[in-house]
Design a protein around this nucleic acid. Structure first.
Lengths: 116, 116
DNA sequence: ATTGTATTTCTATTATGTAGAAAAAATAAA
DNA sequence: TTTATTTTTTCTACATAATAGAAATACAAT
């Protein structure tokens, strides 16, 4: 990989961003919803969790179990938060994409060319 | 996957963008160099080619063999170009990232928070 | 023919993306 | 006090993407 232990995949970035938007309320179900609401990507809950697990193992997020006595049914929620490492990695990924996109507007790349 | 046959991975996006910048001169070696020069990512030539193969199989790029009588040693170059499908897919990926980043400046996400 | 050079192709491995079923753990109802 | 319902997580399995490095091509020069 680009750098063992530090590579950030495409979906991992999406999950990280959803998580940031959700602030104190980021857990499996809400993350899944946030992604779906924002970009219409409908992934399974399992897909979200395995990604969260990997992000945690890499040190990009941390988690803690929710309140012990919730006023509802269901297993306790596991809340996630991004770490400083995760933030800088995410910023770096963004910066790199920006550099790669430099000079290529969303329309620009459609102009001319043999297959355009 | 998000959508069988249409998913665009992180590195696939990078390769596609390098290829666009290179215009008529996009082939394995130059693509690898372009990526390295722009964002300092040093991938093997094999990594570039397998990615190009996948992109071609998905219909996001097309290739054709270079000049039959090159004035130098070495095997003929294989030139690559992005297709309309590839372009729109790339634009879509960018749009989605933009939506996910909305409201989160590169500095903004570093402010406050338990682990900041 | 042999050597050198530039480039591609092949082979293999690990990591990421993904779904779906099963398990947990709490509340509500019987 | 067992059984059902709800909400959420955890487990298992598989397809696809990221990656390296060696081997194969194919041409030019000696």
């Amino acid at each position: 990989m680009a750098n063992k232990e530090t590579y950030l995949g495409e979906f991992e970035q999406i999950v990280l961003l959803a998580l940031i938007h959700l602030k104190e309320n980021a857990y499996g179900m809400t993350i899944r919803m946030e992604i779906n609401e924002r970009i219409g990507r409908d992934v399974s809950i399992g897909a979200v969790y395995t990604t969260l697990e990997r992000l945690e193992k890499k040190g990009f997020i941390v988690s803690k179990l929710g309140e012990a006595t919730p006023q509802r049914g269901g297993k306790a929620k596991r809340y996630f938060q991004i770490t400083p490492t995760g933030k800088s990695k995410l910023n770096e990924a963004r910066k790199n994409f920006e550099i790669m996109w430099q000079g290529l507007g969303p329309e620009l790349i459609r102009a001319g060319g043999m297959y355009a």
